[in-house]
Design a protein around this nucleic acid. Structure first.
Lengths: 266, 266
DNA sequence: GCCTTTTTAAATGCCAGACCTTTAAATGCC
DNA sequence: GGCATTTAAAGGTCTGGCATTTAAAAAGGC
């Protein structure tokens, strides 16, 4: 294996890439053991810390797992649906929060995608999915539920709905669109009135899923999209303004509150 | 900041998580500079290599970028659409390749999602999108095009199509569904006959997009789904069989090497 | 001869300290 | 004032080492 020490990028990045490529291409398959750090250091002609940095990069992508002890080492890891979900959600969340994406755009993409599940849901939904939706619907009607709790249950409801399509790949893809909006939704204050409206729509969605009524499912999702849009727009406007302010006084050290709790007195 | 040295997970993983959380929560925003590695080592009470491993984890997720020299350091990075796309495609590709997901399931999810763009495409597609589709269509008709080249152009065609929806978030989400199938599609041998059929469908898709004909767009996508399914099934069956064989061989190899290392030569 | 305990070797996890390279600000010269 | 030089800060890498974990091998007891 050849690594170019004069390349512009880090050695550890190059090494990580070369191992990643081997995994993607199938040269390394699930549960294969990589050579020990010492051996790889010799093969790539770099030091052990450099190899370790490369391995940490791969670990961050859930591509490998390491095991200590004799006959331990780094092993190619099977990327589970749950791992993939989490990564997808994290990436999507950050994409939304860092790029001045309008609430409208995110919302439009989300509901377009969610509607794409309708056909499969009416075909494949079973009692388990309906029960899960019903359960979340009950949670959403608790009067003392916090906004965050309401929002989390909302996510749970829609997750149950798309799971009803019976296609795990589709569920995984949907997670990025639906759950990544949670931080945005959490900025919304759900009044009693808006909660009631959402619960009404959710009730209609549940009924439509139970009756395998695709048209109704689709139109209620569109109704929910429009209502969400309405709720979100005012919040989003405020958010834009705040961000503009923030950019003015960005001299403040964000990290001090997190990493240097002792430096309060100058 | 407190890091538990007795926790089950690595110190570098804990540190990476604590910084990642600060980014996700908004305590650290784009272009904020993290303290130097030396300073963080002191604050977290760990050594510099450990901090570096944590930073490499974050770099692997495109959350930070580092810059050498005076006043350099690690900076919170704006996750671009392209970075997010790449990560999403990598994750999706690995999910598909590592989990014995049937071609049918992947295909079903992909086309369900792609159909969800139809409404927005007929509304928002412009000449640029149509031109891009036309260009790929020409490429696909080159007689000396390799299967990989055909496949890549196919991806390009569909990318142009979903870009026609005019929603970058949707385009990003679609990439995971469409491009992640490229390795699977690359296993297919595209005969002249099958290329002709696909080109016919693509031509119909282009025409439908040009004419803003949603129904036609949707039905041609379904036609393409069915045809792709047909092409893929034979390949997929062979693939399953090969994997089954491999598993047998692996089992036998491990069995003999671990339990009966001396019985290799009869 | 079989089971339990102890030892041991191979890994990763972590650290200290050093040197090199890059970079931009500070300095000094003209 | 403008340009070249110096300098200090920061990341990139290496050497070498110690600690910890773990499973296999060896030793011991019944």
């Amino acid at each position: 294996m050849k690594i170019d020490p004069n390349s512009s990028s880090d050695l550890s990045a190059q090494i990580a890439k070369s191992i990643r490529d081997a995994i993607i291409s199938g040269d390394l398959i699930v549960e294969d053991r990589l050579p020990s750090e010492q051996e790889m250091a010799e093969q790539f002609d770099v030091s052990r810390p450099t190899i370790r940095e490369a391995l940490k990069r791969l670990a961050a992508q859930s591509l490998i797992r390491t095991q200590r002890g004799a006959f331990g080492g780094a092993f190619v890891r099977r990327l589970s649906y749950e791992d993939a979900r989490k990564q997808h959600i994290t990436t999507s969340t950050l994409l939304l929060s860092m790029n001045d994406i309008s609430f409208d755009t995110a919302c439009q993409a989300r509901y377009a995608m969610e509607r794409s599940c309708v056909g499969l849901v009416v075909e494949n939904r079973n009692e388990t999915h309906l029960e899960a939706m019903k359960h979340e619907l009950n949670v959403q009607q608790q009067p003392d539920l916090s906004d965050e709790g309401f929002c989390a249950s909302d996510i749970g409801f829609h997750r149950a709905l798309v799971d009803g399509a019976g296609n795990p790949v589709l569920s995984y893809q949907m997670a990025g669109a639906i759950e990544a909006m949670q931080p945005l939704m959490n900025m919304i204050t759900f009044t009693d009135r808006s909660r009631a409206e959402i619960v009404t729509i959710h009730t209609a969605l549940l009924a439509a899923a139970a009756e395998r009524d695709a048209e109704q499912l689709e139109s209620q999702l569109t109704r929910l999209e429009n209502y969400t849009l309405k709720l979100g727009r005012s919040v989003f406007e405020r958010r834009r303004e705040k961000r503009a302010e923030k950019n003015d006084n960005n001299a403040r050290t964000m990290f001090s509150s997190i990493l240097r709790p002792d430096e309060s007195a100058p």
